[in-house]
């Protein structure tokens, strides 16, 4: 599909990206909010305070797996491979701590903030991308 990158899925990526953009646009224009998953999750679980209604927060949270299910149901698909539980727990702690400390994740900063040309979100996105790239590189050196 993409010359030089036999595993890449540019069309599926673009279609999925447009769906994510429409999702974030509906949250912005419909509900007047940023579709930031880490923030909404913190709000829904009561970890963060905010003025978002619990009904709204949980509507969004529950929608995520339902949307995934809607795509997969009726098709054969291969389950993805995940890291071992201890690795997932270490990674989860870092992701939870870091997204709250940095006020957002891939959705809030990466999609909503970058498209708004927010300086904070552009810096945050560059920071987590660089850290992710460095982490994968270092882990590849030690044999992953």
């Amino acid at each position: 599909m993409l010359p030089g990158f036999p595993d890449a899925q540019p069309v599926a990526g673009l279609v999925g990206g447009v769906l994510i953009g429409l999702a974030a646009a509906l949250m912005l224009l419909g509900a007047g909010r940023i579709a930031g998953v880490s923030g909404i999750l913190a709000r829904g679980t009561g970890i963060a305070r905010g003025d978002m209604a619990m009904t709204s927060a949980w509507g969004f949270i529950v929608g995520l797996p339902l949307g995934a299910l809607a795509i997969r149901s009726g098709f054969d698909w291969e389950p993805a491979t995940f890291a071992s539980w201890p690795v997932l727990i270490v990674a989860g702690l870092l992701v939870g701590f870091g997204t709250r400390m940095g006020s957002g994740c891939t959705s809030g900063h990466g999609v909503c903030g970058v498209s708004r040309l927010s300086q904070r979100s552009i810096v945050a996105t560059a920071s987590f991308m660089a850290a992710g790239i460095a982490t994968v590189f270092v882990l590849s050196l030690v044999g992953d």
């Binding site: 998953v37 880490s38 999750l41 949270i61 995520l64 797996p65 339902l66 949307g67 995934a68 299910l69 997969r72 389950p79 993805a80 995940f82 890291a83 690795v87 997932l88 270490v90 990674a91 989860g92 702690l93 870092l94 992701v95 701590f97 870091g98 997204t99 709250r100 400390m101 940095g102 006020s103 994740c105 891939t106 959705s107 900063h109 904070r120 810096v123 945050a124 996105t125 920071s127 987590f128 991308m129 660089a130 850290a131 992710g132 790239i133 460095a134 982490t135 994968v136 882990l139």
Partner: peptide, 30 residues
């Protein structure tokens, strides 16, 4: 805080290949 928090998040993201959205969505899959 913005930068340090994002760096910590990026390290976790690189370790597992998961960020909050896909993790919650994958509850229906894995």
């Amino acid at each position: 805080r913005l930068i340090a928090g994002s760096v910590l998040f990026g390290i976790g993201w690189g370790i597992a290949g998961l960020c909050p959205g896909p993790a919650i969505a994958a509850l229906a899959l894995s």
